[in-house]
Simulated assay, not measured.
Amino acid sequence: MTPRVWHISGANSGLGLELVLKVLKEGDLVVAAVRSPSKVPNNLKVDGVKVLQYDLSFSQEEMHSYAEKAFAAFGHAQVRTQFDINVFGILRTIRTFLPHLRAQPAATAPGSGTILNLSSIGGYRSYPSNGIYCATKFALEAITESLAAEIAPFGLRAVPVEPGYFRTSFLSGVSGDAGSGNLAPPMQVYEGMVAHEARRHMLAVDGKQPGNPAEAAARIWEFVAGEGLCKGNEWRGRLPLGRDAGTEMRRVGEEMVETARVYEDVWASTDFQD
Rank of each mutant, 00 (worst) to 15 (best):
T2R: 14
P3M: 06
S13Y: 05
G14Y: 10
E18I: 02
V20L: 00
E26T: 00
V34I: 01
R35T: 09
S38Q: 14
K39G: 00
K45I: 02
V46P: 03
G48Y: 03
K50M: 08
K50T: 13
Q53M: 08
D55K: 08
L56W: 05
S57P: 00
S59Y: 03
H64L: 06
A67N: 06
A67I: 14
E68Q: 09
K69H: 07
A70E: 09
A72S: 13
A73G: 04
Q82W: 15
F83D: 05
V87Q: 00
I90P: 01
L91E: 13
L91A: 10
R95T: 01
F97R: 02
F97H: 11
P99Q: 06
L101S: 05
A103T: 07
A103L: 10
T108G: 03
P110R: 03
G111E: 12
S112F: 04
N117I: 04
G122L: 12
Y127D: 07
C134I: 08
F138G: 07
A139E: 04
A139I: 11
E141V: 01
T144Y: 07
E145A: 10
S146T: 15
A148I: 01
A149L: 09
E150L: 11
P163S: 07
Y165M: 09
S169H: 11
F170W: 08
A178G: 14
L183I: 11
A184F: 14
M187K: 15
Q188M: 03
Y190M: 05
G192H: 11
V194H: 11
A198F: 14
R199W: 09
L203G: 01
L203M: 13
D206K: 04
D206S: 05
G207T: 08
K208N: 11
E215Y: 12
E215Q: 15
A217D: 07
A217R: 03
R219E: 15
I220C: 13
W221D: 06
V224E: 06
E227M: 03
E227Y: 00
G228E: 09
L229E: 14
G232Y: 03
E234H: 05
R236H: 10
R236D: 05
R236P: 02
G246D: 06
A260L: 15
D271G: 12
